[in-house]
C-alpha cells in the first residue's frame, strides 16, 4: 500500500480520534487545574480541585464502591460467562436462538434495561422477584435503600447486562481450541475439570484477558444504570465515580467543571492501574506473535 493510500484510509479515523478523544482529554487535564464555569474562561487554581476531591469522604466512598463492583462483577462474568459458554457450545439447533435472546440484554440501552430490571424488585411496579424472595425468605428486603441488598441488585443487573459479550467471546475461544489438544489430554487421562483447568483455559488466555479488560473498563464507567437502580446512591454508599462526577459537575445546574475534570483525571489513572496487568499481557502476546 502506498503512503498516500494509507494516509487516506487512516486520516478520517485519526481526525475523529483527535477531535473526540485527544482534544477533550487535553481540555480535561487543563480544566482540572482551573475553576471553570460554563461559557467562561477558567481561572488557574493549582491543585485545589485535586485536594478537594481527595479530601472528600464521598469521593472515597465512590472509589471504594466502584472498585468493589468492578472486582465482583469481573469475577462473576468470567466464571458464569465461561460456564454458560460451555453450555451454549453444547447446544444444537437451539444455539442461535439462545445466543440471540441473550444479546437482548447487551444491546438494550443501559438505562432502559436498568429501569426494567429495577421493576423486578420494586413492589410499586409489580416487583415479581421481590415478591418471590419475600415469600421464600419471609423477609422484606429494602432493595433501594439498604446498602447491601441494593449492591446485590446492582451487581446482578451489571452481570445480566454484560454477560452476553463475555459468553460470545469465550464461545469463540472455545471453538478455537484444537480438537487434537483435547484428544491428547483425554488419552493422557485428564478428566473434564482438569481438561478445562489445564488445557482449554490456558489455550484461551488471550481471550480471557480481553474479556477482563473490556469488563473492567465497562464497570469502572458505571453511571446511567444507577439512576433507576440506586436513587439515593450517595446516601447509602453506592455511588460510582462517574455518578459522583455528574452530581458535582452538572446536576441541578451545578457548575463545578474543574472539580469534575480533576475527578476524571484521577479516574483515568485508576483505570490505567486496574488495566495495567492486562494491557502488559496483551502487548507481550502481540510482541511474541510478531
Amino acid at each position: 500500500m502506498r503512503r498516500r493510500e494509507f494516509a487516506s484510509f487512516i486520516g478520517p479515523s485519526l481526525l475523529v480520534m483527535v477531535g473526540l478523544l485527544v482534544l477533550p482529554l487535553i481540555r480535561t487535564v487543563q480544566w482540572s487545574f482551573q475553576e471553570v464555569n460554563y461559557g467562561q474562561a477558567g481561572t488557574f487554581i493549582g491543585l485545589s480541585n485535586y485536594t478537594q476531591a481527595l479530601g472528600d469522604p464521598r469521593f472515597g466512598r465512590a472509589v471504594f464502591f466502584t472498585l468493589l463492583l468492578t472486582a465482583i462483577v469481573t469475577a462473576l462474568i468470567l466464571v458464569v460467562g465461561y460456564l454458560v459458554a460451555i453450555g451454549v457450545n453444547g447446544l444444537g439447533k437451539l444455539r442461535p436462538y439462545i445466543l440471540g435472546s441473550m444479546l437482548v440484554a447487551y444491546v438494550l440501552p443501559g438505562v432502559v434495561g436498568a429501569v426494567s430490571f429495577s421493576w423486578l424488585f420494586n413492589s410499586n411496579f409489580g416487583g415479581v422477584l421481590n415478591l418471590v424472595i419475600e415469600r421464600l425468605t419471609g423477609q422484606e428486603l429494602l432493595w433501594f435503600t439498604d446498602t447491601w441488598p441494593n449492591r446485590v441488585m446492582i451487581i446482578a443487573h451489571t452481570v445480566w447486562h454484560l454477560l452476553p459479550f463475555s459468553v460470545l467471546m469465550i464461545l469463540a475461544g472455545l471453538q478455537g481450541v484444537p480438537k487434537e489438544l483435547r484428544e491428547a489430554a483425554r488419552i493422557d487421562g485428564a478428566n473434564a475439570l482438569k481438561m478445562h483447568l489445564w488445557v482449554i483455559i490456558p489455550t484461551m488466555r488471550g481471550i480471557i484477558g480481553f474479556v477482563c479488560l473490556i469488563t473492567i473498563m465497562d464497570v469502572l464507567r458505571t453511571f446511567d444504570s444507577l439512576i433507576p437502580l440506586s436513587p439515593q446512591a450517595d446516601a447509602i454508599g453506592n455511588e460510582s465515580i462517574m455518578f459522583y462526577v455528574f452530581d458535582n459537575a452538572f446536576r441541578d445546574g451545578s457548575q463545578q467543571l474543574g472539580l469534575g475534570s480533576a475527578v476524571n483525571v484521577l479516574s483515568i489513572l485508576l483505570i490505567l492501574i486496574c488495566l495495567f496487568p492486562f494491557i502488559r499481557d496483551l502487548l507481550k502476546e502481540a510482541k511474541a506473535k510478531a
Binding site: 439447533k93 442461535p96 440471540g100
Partner: peptide
Amino acid sequence: NRTQIRTGITAMVIAASLTSLTAC
C-alpha cells in the same frame, strides 16, 4: 449452522433495537 446463528442473532438484535427505539 452459521446461517442459523446469524439469522437468530439478527432477529433478536432487531427486536431489541425496536424495543429501545420505542422507549426513546
